[in-house]
């Protein structure tokens, strides 16, 4: 589904991500863990075509994000950590906008908006202007917008920040359901307990370099993910 090969991104003289290789197959949820400034957001943004990069290759279902970005973007959805949405639109206007770009039919979009709106408790709040929404409400709108076209790959940057407990629980169910249906998810998080329960694979990044990756069992072993992460931070 997603193949990142020797991905390197440099900002002026600083190497943000250095020679990162990561593969995510259909049906997998991969947790991306690292300290602040490790390169998680840079990697996610490069995967969805927001950032250009210096070296390496990123492909989504065989399409290169550099040479065929439109084909890649049709299959994926991105949810940033801080959802800066169009403040001048209402939630429903934003969702319709995204649905129009993805050419989602009226029936499908209405059905999905109703479904995810009810699931996340957002239905009535979709009529509010986004400028009037709280951070958590914006996060939910961004989430519904990401799911409206039934993407194959979902890229999420700290998706649980700002969500209430019910919405967090529902999001975990949605993620599990998505992968059960053959989709894939790459998400970054600082909440290691969630990563332990949800993820099939883990990738730990430190200072732009991938320091550990593999299945949860391979990476964690008998210890907790937190212990593994802290040990890696100390030793490297």
């Amino acid at each position: 589904m997603l193949r990142i090969e020797h991905f390197t991104k440099t900002y002026r003289s600083k190497v943000a991500v250095d020679d990162l290789t990561l593969h995510i197959a259909p049906g997998e949820i991969c947790g991306f863990i690292g300290h602040n400034g490790a390169g998680k957001t840079t990697t996610l943004k490069a995967c969805c075509g927001i950032l250009q990069f210096d070296k390496g290759a990123i492909t989504v279902n065989g399409h290169s994000i550099l040479t065929d970005p439109i084909a890649c973007k049709r299959d994926l959805a991105y949810i940033p950590d801080n959802p800066d949405l169009y403040e001048f639109l209402t939630g429903i206007q934003y969702l319709n906008f995204v649905a129009d770009i993805y050419e989602v039919s009226k029936t499908d979009r209405n059905q999905r908006i109703a479904h995810y709106g009810n699931l996340l408790g957002m239905t009535e709040d979709l009529t509010l202007k986004i400028s009037e929404c709280s951070h958590g409400m914006k996060q939910k709108i961004a989430l519904i917008a990401a799911l409206i076209h039934k993407p194959r790959l979902i890229l999420m940057d700290e998706p649980f920040v700002g969500l209430d407990p019910i919405a967090s629980h529902q999001l975990k169910n949605v993620m599990a359901q998505h992968c059960a249906e053959g989709g894939a998810i790459l998400f970054s998080t600082h909440v290691l307990e969630v990563a332990e329960k949800l993820c099939h694979k883990i990738a730990i990044i430190k200072g732009g370099k991938l320091v550990a990756s593999g299945t949860m069992e391979d990476v964690r072993g008998q210890a907790s993910l937190e212990q593994v992460f802290l040990d890696l931070e100390d030793t490297l």
Partner: peptide
């Protein structure tokens, strides 16, 4: 912020081609 909520009516939503949406 008025936070005046209206009833969501999905039936009135219209589709548009991507360029027109922008």
């Amino acid at each position: 912020v008025s936070r005046k909520r209206q009833k969501l009516n999905l039936k009135t939503s219209k589709t548009a081609p991507p360029v027109n949406a922008i």
